[in-house]
């Protein structure tokens, strides 16, 4: 820990207390890159993580992600965790470059805590959504250079005046889109969106009415379908018994489904 001069950068606006700003002041976070021209053929292919989905169901929001990370045609890792807990009620799921995404998740997690500790109140859901948007916007210089693209989904529970589960997806520039039913991003997302749209519109019941078991089944089927045509999506590895990560956000916080339960449901209604 560095020696400090106390309160040197206090200002009434509170902007000096933004956590990313604190990190930049201390040289712990890369400065926002200057806008650069897009690079046509980057010489180096970054690692990518793919295909995440989220939808609202009876018990809150279900967020699921496959486990594969790729770099071009190469499978880099088959046990990547793309569904990250940010605080007791928030999940960020990532598609894109894990190095950038995990760093963003770390900054975000610490930002929310830092805000609560310094300001003595929880950050509002809108504030949290905006914080992620800002990180994506700051990162856009790297996106243009062909490295560091991240397209996240953010799911949280708003305990405010109108308690409800909230779900957002983002584009690489930081625009946030709140969705009522479902969201999917990553290379396998066209197939996933097709399935979620179909289930929601013509399935036995809309996604919002599904119970936990039915919701998990839909998520597993969607990821398996995405993996069928998209090489970058891991889906379910039947030989190595690698299953997607599935977490649920509700009023009571975040539940991570045990692998055993996912395996059992997979065996019963997907395989």
């Amino acid at each position: 820990m560095d020696p400090v001069t106390l309160g040197s950068d206090q200002n009434f606006s509170g902007i000096g207390n933004d956590f990313p700003a604190l990190l930049r002041r201390r040289g712990l976070l890369a400065p926002v890159p200057a806008q650069t021209a897009p690079v046509a053929n980057p010489a180096w292919i970054p690692t990518q993580a793919t295909t995440i989905l989220a939808f609202k169901f009876q018990g809150g929001v279900l967020v699921a992600g496959d486990r594969r990370a790729t770099s071009g045609n190469t499978v880099v890792y088959d046990r990547a965790d793309k569904v990250l807990e940010i605080d007791r009620h928030s999940i960020m799921a990532i598609a894109g470059v894990p190095a950038t995404a995990w760093e963003m998740a770390r900054v975000l997690e610490h930002s929310f805590q830092f805000f609560r500790r310094t300001q003595l109140q929880e950050m509002s859901v809108d504030g949290k959504v905006r914080a992620l948007s800002k990180l994506l916007r700051d990162n856009f210089g790297f996106v243009l250079q062909g490295v560091g693209v991240v397209v996240p989904i953010f799911a949280t529970y708003d305990a405010g005046a109108d308690p409800s589960a909230r779900l957002y997806f983002y584009d690489a520039m930081g625009a946030q889109f709140e969705v009522t039913d479902y969201a999917a991003t990553g290379s396998g997302s066209p197939a996933v969106r097709g399935i979620l749209y179909y289930e929601n519109t013509w399935g036995k019941k809309p996604l919002a009415k599904l119970n936990q078991e039915e919701a998990v089944t839909v998520a597993l089927r969607a990821l398996d379908t995405a993996a069928e045509s998209d090489t970058a999506t891991g889906g379910v590895d039947r030989n190595a018994k690698i299953f997607p990560v599935i977490k649920i956000v509700s009023r009571d916080g975040i539940t991570t489904l045990p692998e055993k339960r996912i395996a059992a449901l997979f065996k019963r209604s997907v395989a």
């Binding site: 820990m1 106390l6 309160g7 206090q10 990190l23 712990l28």
Partner: peptide, 27 residues
């Protein structure tokens, strides 16, 4: 001012290294 300094130091340390590296003794 002291509270803010303590939180900033602990948070920066916890972010760069890990929560386990934040120690009251050092702070």
């Amino acid at each position: 001012r002291l509270r803010m300094a303590a939180i900033e130091l602990a948070s920066a340390e916890g972010f760069t290294r890990s929560a386990a590296d934040v120690s009251l003794r050092r702070l």
